[in-house]
């Protein structure tokens, strides 16, 4: 039977590639939007403006404190109730962007706060505005400690994207779920699913580790 199912699985490969494409699309869009929003969130979280800090902090806690699956259900099932009809795909991108942005906010904020206070004081003393301080003094230094966990976060993003299969987005995981109804060899089908995720995530994990080593060396040279 194994041989027969194996051939069946090989014949389903185009279907899996479509799933792979969907995973990359959902994760890729969320990565771009999430990173942009996350940087703004992080700058607000590390700012001297207390209400901004607290609002962003409450949002981060809300997202960190609840499972992503529940967040997707809320966006996909509840938003229509207040008049926002969403297809599964945009709902998935919104949910994943929101999740990623909240984590990147924390990463960026702690990166900014890790820059020694004296740097800002020196910049203030030479008359740089808040924006200029951030742009030319703080962020370039913070980026060293931001980059490795940021790439690590992208790995989580790809993995978390598997959960959007629950609202019917036909990504790699959903393709596996549909295929296993036809080819009842769970190890084989989800072995292939795992392999496809591995192909995306493993290089990213190594990139994160590499950046971490690079950045540590670079900062000790400072």
């Amino acid at each position: 039977m194994w041989g027969f199912y194996f051939n069946e699985l090989i014949r389903s490969l185009p279907f899996f590639l479509k799933g792979l494409y969907m995973t990359v699309a959902v994760a890729g869009l969320s990565l771009v939007f999430g990173t942009i929003i996350g940087f703004f969130g992080g700058i607000m979280r590390a700012s001297r403006n207390k209400p901004a800090r607290m609002i962003v902090g409450a949002w981060v806690d809300l997202i960190r404190g609840t499972p992503f699956l529940v967040q997707i259900f809320v966006i996909f099932f509840i938003l229509p109730g207040i008049g926002i009809e969403l297809e599964a795909f945009p709902a998935a991108v919104i949910a994943l962007t929101n999740l990623t942005a909240s984590f990147i906010t924390e990463i960026v904020a702690s990166g900014i706060l890790a820059v020694p206070k004296g740097q800002r004081e020196a910049a203030t003393a030479s008359g740089l505005s808040n924006y200029l301080q951030l742009r030319f003094i703080v962020l370039p230094q913070a980026i060293r400690s931001i980059l490795p966990p940021l790439v690590g976060q992208y790995v989580l993003l790809v993995k978390d994207s598997s959960v959007v299969s629950a609202i019917g987005v036909v990504d790699i995981t959903r393709v596996g779920w549909l295929t296993v109804q036809r080819i009842p060899e769970g190890l084989m089908v989800f072995g292939l699913v795992g392999l496809l995720y591995f192909a995306i995530c493993y290089p990213l994990i190594n990139l994160s580790g590499f950046l971490e080593r690079r950045m540590t060396v670079a900062s000790t040279k400072l």
Partner: peptide, 15 residues
């Protein structure tokens, strides 16, 4: 670390 929990869960559930 390189694969999603949901895929692992289905791997055991169907496998």
């Amino acid at each position: 670390r390189s694969t999603p929990l949901l895929a692992q869960l289905y791997f055991f559930y169907f496998g």
